[in-house]
């Protein structure tokens, strides 16, 4: 029949690469563009995980040991969050949110794949080697990202904090002396700008909606806020990368983060939760109790067939 799927709409497919990855860096903007599409591939400034894997395998992109460790941190953050958010797909409060949370999960997964592909370039590992065949203590994500979804308000509180943090971080990383980190950040910052918008809209709706939703939003922030401090901790790695111009000290993001989140919280008539900060330790592989279960589920099938291709 003339309308078999094999012949339908082949022009819709984008299977060409985008060439040298430096293209992405040169043309990318340094901040969020309100008109950019979070999903459409924009030739010229879209850096795909596959492009990075290719550049790594060709030897045109090779991370320093420090850059690889840093990419691992950011990749693990994004991967763990994508795994959490993926659970909402088919369970969201309304269909529009199945789509929205699915989109955010996909964006995070895309960032994770790019960062992990780059990190793996240090010693010949693929994104999947890193995602599926490392143990809990080898993950470098901070504890915020692995916090359970809870109810919708907890998920929104987590996303609100994450997106404001990631926006400030990626915005600065677009200036990194490491061209690949800058390229990944240039793509990611546009997408994370949408995540800020999405979570802000919901913080306002939940905080100012009904008494019930307000109580839940306050609870959500209270549950999430202990994990905020860890995002902004400097250490020897970030000091070295900052000195090399490849990254910035996490603590340098805090003023902007506090100011911008503070504006939204004020509009939502919410106070910044006064809760003790958790001691953290994710960057050194010391995680909360939640990560092990998350990884067990994520890795089970891949580990059942080691070496298999999918």
């Amino acid at each position: 029949m003339s309308t078999t799927p094999e012949t339908e709409n082949t022009t819709e497919m984008h299977d060409g690469g985008h060439g040298d990855i430096s293209v992405g860096v040169a043309t990318a903007g340094t901040s969020g563009d309100a008109n950019a599409s979070a999903t459409r591939i924009t030739p010229g400034n879209a850096l795909r995980p596959e492009d990075i894997a290719l550049a790594v395998s060709r030897g045109t992109a090779k991370p320093s040991e420090d850059a690889a460790e840093f990419a691992l941190r950011l990749g693990d953050d994004a991967l763990v969050l994508a795994q959490r958010l993926g659970h909402w797909i088919s369970r969201a409060p309304e269909l529009e949110e199945d789509v929205a949370l699915g989109n955010i999960a996909l964006d995070q997964l895309g960032h994770a794949r790019s960062f992990l592909s780059y990190a793996g370039g240090l010693n010949g590992k693929s994104e999947d080697d890193l995602a599926y065949f490392r143990g809990e203590e080898e993950f470098r994500s901070v504890e915020l990202f692995e916090q359970p979804n809870g109810d919708f308000a907890v998920t929104i509180a987590r996303q609100f904090v994450v997106s404001y943090y990631q926006f400030e971080l990626y915005r600065r990383l677009t200036e990194s002396t490491d061209a690949t980190l800058a390229g990944i950040a240039a793509k990611a910052v546009k997408e994370v700008d949408y995540h800020r918008d999405h979570s802000t809209q919901w913080v306002l709706r939940l905080a100012l909606g009904t008494d019930e939703s307000r109580a839940k939003m306050i609870h959500g922030f209270k549950v999430i806020w202990p994990y905020v401090d860890e995002l902004f901790r400097d250490d020897e790695l970030t000091a070295r990368l900052t000195a090399a111009g490849a990254a910035v000290e996490p603590s340098s993001l805090r003023t902007d983060f506090d100011r911008l989140t503070g504006e939204v919280l004020a509009e939502a008539e919410l106070d910044v939760p006064q809760v003790p900060a958790a001691s953290g330790g994710g960057r050194q592989g010391k995680h909360s109790e939640h990560l092990g279960y998350l990884l067990a589920e994520m890795q089970v099938l891949a580990r059942q067939f080691p070496g298999a291709s999918w």
Binding site: V99, G102, N103, G110, L116, L301, W310
Partner: peptide, 25 residues
């Protein structure tokens, strides 16, 4: 979605299930 055996497959599957929500809409 949570157990997809590679990150690429996970991304494709997420996008697919998300499409279905869009079709429903």
């Amino acid at each position: 979605i949570s157990r997809a055996p590679s990150l690429k497959r996970k991304a494709i599957l997420m996008a697919k299930v998300q499409d279905e929500a869009g079709h429903g809409l």
